[in-house]
Design a protein around this nucleic acid. Structure first.
Lengths: 329, 329
DNA sequence: CTGAAAGCGCTTACAG
DNA sequence: CTGAAAGCGCTTACAG
């Protein structure tokens, strides 16, 4: 009873199984080079003892590291966590945990000299998933991170891009608004320092050009507040606006809020479309028309790519988005 | 250049500083028992080398563990992550990361035989933060976790409770609704298996009793969908209802959605109050009256308590909540 | 297929 | 105040 206190080690398992530590280690690691008899004895012993391998010791011995870091580029040195980041962190933690590794988040301040140097030197990190990546950051990724760094956003020749097809979504949204008769279509773009906001902007611009409509862009920061402000600015500058495409749902909800306050009918007077399809998109009034953004799927894929750690850069991977028609447009 | 590849170890630092590994370790750990000269040389060497200590090796040597686990009780074996859990996981990850430890999340299925046994045996975990705790789970907490387990929710004689004063919030809300003339006040409670939903229910019941009003409770599951359903049930059973208090904002937004759809005026016909003060509370229409829930602060405090790892049970800690008046009530 | 041995990078009594 | 040495719990060439 007394020794219940001390956690069981592989040594205990080996002793009970009557093998060496090396053999116990082999069967526990699933190596095929062991006799059936040994395999059986070790497995039984491990089960009897309630053996839980010490991941740190294993990571130390293999030199593989035991945590993956989420590197989040941020204009402020202190991170402000919105719903997107919350979903991402949670999904990453789940995926990593399932693979037996932990997670930590690092803020990468915009414009810091060499933000990734420490991470590359840290043997405990098996890989890094970058968020809100900039081109500047991408050039500072140390070669030591090659093969175990991915970017949810833009990529480079070293770092694969794993992202949603937000350009395609923007195109679909713009076309839908045009097809449903809107002729004064405005867009609220994301923060200009984020390169991943470029494609939606381009897609919107292209669609407008192709149907001979003017372009009306204003920039927000992905918050609901900026949706309110942006809508007010839009309405002031182009009172005839009959559709607003916000590049995320939070911002679109802010737009809805301002329009509600001003008793502007949605979608009668102004159609509103978001992007992300967050849970709160469907509970407001009117429910928001938007396009899907499979954040969890993307992040899980990113974590697995990093963990796979194959030599060389992994392939880019773009996930589909599709329109979800509700009542706001 | 070539040896840039190999991460620097404390051995490298010691060699460059001209000391033993032991001395280098002491100054890096901040031990006072070192000469100023040694301290200075070691610190300079570490800086020059860009030395990053290997947290795994340190944890192995000290036996302290290098990650804290978030144990989330769930009725389903697979976790459904709502905004609350997303905020909690993110805040925990930030707090833990700042202390140099990682995080993993474990689902603790409701009614599993001995859900915490593995965790107690795992030397890599320095502590655990429990979410959605039940009394049953609490009784199964192994003594080995004493002093390094806390509960965001109900506690036990082994596990301190760290939580928001949701009872006080419920009392304030109920009184406010009564004070503003409501006389048919209904409540949508949280899931019945969560003991932390008990205090708000009790507070509501007590206030109603104290002013001689009947009690009208229906149970949701903290989702917006259940807010819609619960509101429909409430209206069917008690058509005269003039106020609905939902025990979380997501549910309250669902209520607002159903009421909007039925063209029931809020707050004219029915007042609606939530709890949590999530960002989305203020962007819908009408903006939601609710009470604050400092999730991040609470989780950060919990992580720090676990990391402090003092012998014996830490004190309970209840965080204040206050009413935020907007337009829905 | 198996075991003895060295090693992963740190910390910490123990002597001095 | 300092260093040599043992140890944390694993894995993995290396020999057999």
């Amino acid at each position: 009873m007394r020794d219940r206190q001390r956690a069981k080690t592989i040594e205990d398992v080996a002793r009970l199984a009557g093998t060496s530590r090396a053999t116990a280690s082999r069967v526990l690691a699933g190596s095929p080079a062991v006799s059936d008899s040994a395999r059986e004895r070790v497995n039984r012993a491990a089960a009897d003892l309630g053996y839980v391998p010490n991941a740190m010791a294993r990571a130390l011995a293999t030199g593989r590291g035991d945590r993956i870091v989420l590197g989040i580029v941020s204009p402020q040195p202190v991170l402000s966590v919105d719903l997107y980041l919350g979903r991402a962190v949670t999904a990453a933690t789940q995926a990593a945990t399932a693979a037996g590794v932990g997670v930590s988040v690092h803020v990468l301040p915009l414009g810091a000299p060499n933000p990734l140097a420490d991470l590359a030197a840290d043997r405990t990190v098996c890989g890094v998933v970058l968020f809100n990546t900039t081109f500047g950051l991408l050039t500072s990724v140390p070669r030591a991170l090659a093969g175990r760094a991915v970017s949810i956003g833009v990529g480079s020749d070293l770092v694969p891009s794993i992202d949603v097809d937000n350009g395609g979504a923007a195109r679909e949204i713009a076309r839908y608004l045009y097809a449903t008769g809107r002729r004064e279509i405005a867009m609220i773009g994301g923060p200009r320092w984020m390169p991943c906001t470029l494609r939606p902007r381009q897609a919107y611009t292209e669609v407008m050009a192709s149907v001979g409509l003017p372009t009306r862009i204003v920039y927000g920061d992905f918050t609901a507040d900026s949706g309110r402000e942006s809508a007010a600015r839009l309405l002031a500058q182009w009172p005839e606006t009959d559709a607003i495409y916000a590049s995320c749902d939070a911002t679109a909800l802010g737009v809805l809020s301002l329009l509600g306050e001003r008793r502007i009918d949605v979608p009668g007077d102004v159609a509103v479309v978001g992007f992300d399809d967050i849970p709160y998109a469907q509970v407001g009034w009117p429910p928001l028309t938007t396009a899907t953004h499979p954040v969890e799927t993307i992040v899980e894929y990113a974590v697995q790519t990093v963990l796979a750690g194959r030599p060389g850069r992994a392939d880019d991977r773009i996930f589909d988005s599709h329109l979800v028609l509700r009542r706001s447009a």
